[in-house]
């Protein structure tokens, strides 16, 4: 387990190194002055700019420029947004929690529905339910998410009027910012309308979550189906059958556990995909997250914001990736120990 952890940590460091190099070089690649792209100070006076150039060691070699950029990053200074002239760090701290909330709920929902349905399809392999599920899955991951989002708004918010179509919570409720995660903040607050606010926030969450979760859920269905089919094909299942276990016993006690492990290994890879979908969904549902902020910032040519957003969003994805790796290792002894005697 120690080696496993060390390996993950070293991978994380290497990844962060590459990522910061990438984001540092972006400031050269974006149009305009490199220093201004890096700091976002578009209205700075020449004296101020000279001070900044000194701070970022512009006269020194490119390597020390990179290191001074890194040290600014570690102090939480990502420069100022070119559009709003607020520090990028505050902007991100206000928006990232909404994205975390949306993506993590969507991921859980996608796994919760996708994996059992995939198992169900595998049990009825090459029968009607299997084909039906495969067909639905095909439509699910082929549907363009912006179209799906618009249809969802049209049907459920406008025609049926069941659910709100935009935002995170009704403006009537005033929620104190503690963690940034809306649902937790509501539970922590001591407002007398706590439960109404919680209900309202949940109602706002339902539509975007369904839209984000649909495509990953169908992918989980396929992954779970393949994993289950592989497991059902192994020798230990045959051995269990030979011992006279019933089909239900085999599925619940042996097949399901081993198949879930296989699916969880691939969840991390799907997460980047899920974040892409969430970015567009945030845009459609006016969700105040980091994805819609990034898309806005490209309209406004806010290069500092794009750099900061790249680092934060990718780091978030890597952290989720690593968490899932650890969950996988915790569930599967074969992954954390080297194989002996194979």
């Amino acid at each position: 387990m120690l080696i496993f952890t060390l390996r993950r940590i070293s991978l994380f460091f290497f990844t962060m190194l590459l990522l910061t190099i990438l984001s540092f070089s972006l400031s050269f690649l974006f149009p305009g002055e490199q220093l201004i792209n890096l700091t976002g100070q578009i209205n700075a006076t020449p004296e101020h700019l000279a001070a900044l150039a000194h701070q970022y060691q512009q006269q020194a070699s490119i390597v020390s420029q990179y290191f001074s950029y890194l040290s600014h990053l570690f102090q939480g200074d990502m420069g100022y947004s070119m559009a709003s002239q607020l520090p990028i760090t505050t902007e991100i701290f206000h928006r990232l929690p909404a994205t975390i909330e949306l993506t993590s709920v969507a991921l859980l929902i996608a796994m919760f529905f996708g994996i059992p349905i995939g198992f169900f399809a595998a049990i009825y392999h090459r029968k009607v339910p299997d084909n039906l599920i495969l067909a639905i899955a095909m439509i699910g991951y082929s549907i363009p998410v912006f179209w799906l989002g618009m249809l969802a708004i049209l049907i459920f918010s406008i025609q049926l009027g069941w659910l709100p179509s935009a935002g995170q919570i009704s403006l009537l409720f005033e929620i104190e910012y503690v963690t940034g995660l809306q649902l937790i903040d509501i539970l922590l607050s001591d407002s007398e309308y706590k439960w109404q606010a919680f209900q309202d926030a949940t109602r706002h969450l339902i539509l975007p979550v369904i839209v984000v979760a649909l495509a990953p859920a169908t992918i989980f269905m396929r992954l779970a189906r393949t994993a289950m089919l592989e497991v059902l094909d192994t020798h230990y299942i045959t051995a269990a059958q030979a011992k006279g276990l019933t089909f239900a016993q085999i599925i619940y006690r042996h097949a399901m556990r081993n198949a879930v492990i296989k699916v969880i290994r691939d969840v991390g890879l799907q997460f980047a995909n899920l974040v892409t979908i969430a970015m567009i969904t945030e845009m459609i549902f006016s969700w105040p997250g980091i994805g819609s902020w990034l898309i806005e910032s490209i309209y406004q040519r806010d290069y500092t914001a794009i750099q900061g957003g790249l680092i934060v969003l990718s780091t978030f994805i890597f952290i989720v990736h690593i968490i899932i790796d650890f969950v996988y290792a915790a569930l599967n002894p074969l992954a954390r120990e080297p194989n002996h005697g194979t």
């Binding site: 991978l11 290497f14 990844t15 590459l18 990522l19 990438l22 972006l26 690649l29 974006f30 149009p31 890879l269 980047a272 995909n273 974040v275 892409t276 970015m279 567009i280 990034l294 898309i295 490209i298 040519r301 290069y303 794009i306 957003g309 790249l310 969003l313 990718s314 994805i317 890597f318 990736h321």
Partner: peptide
């Protein structure tokens, strides 16, 4: 190999947005 892993785990849309920001 590691470089590819990093690139592959950045969301494709974000990467495309960055490249569009560079190119216009």
């Amino acid at each position: 190999n590691h470089f590819l892993d990093v690139i592959l785990s950045i969301p494709s849309l974000l990467l495309a947005i960055i490249i569009v920001a560079i190119l216009g």
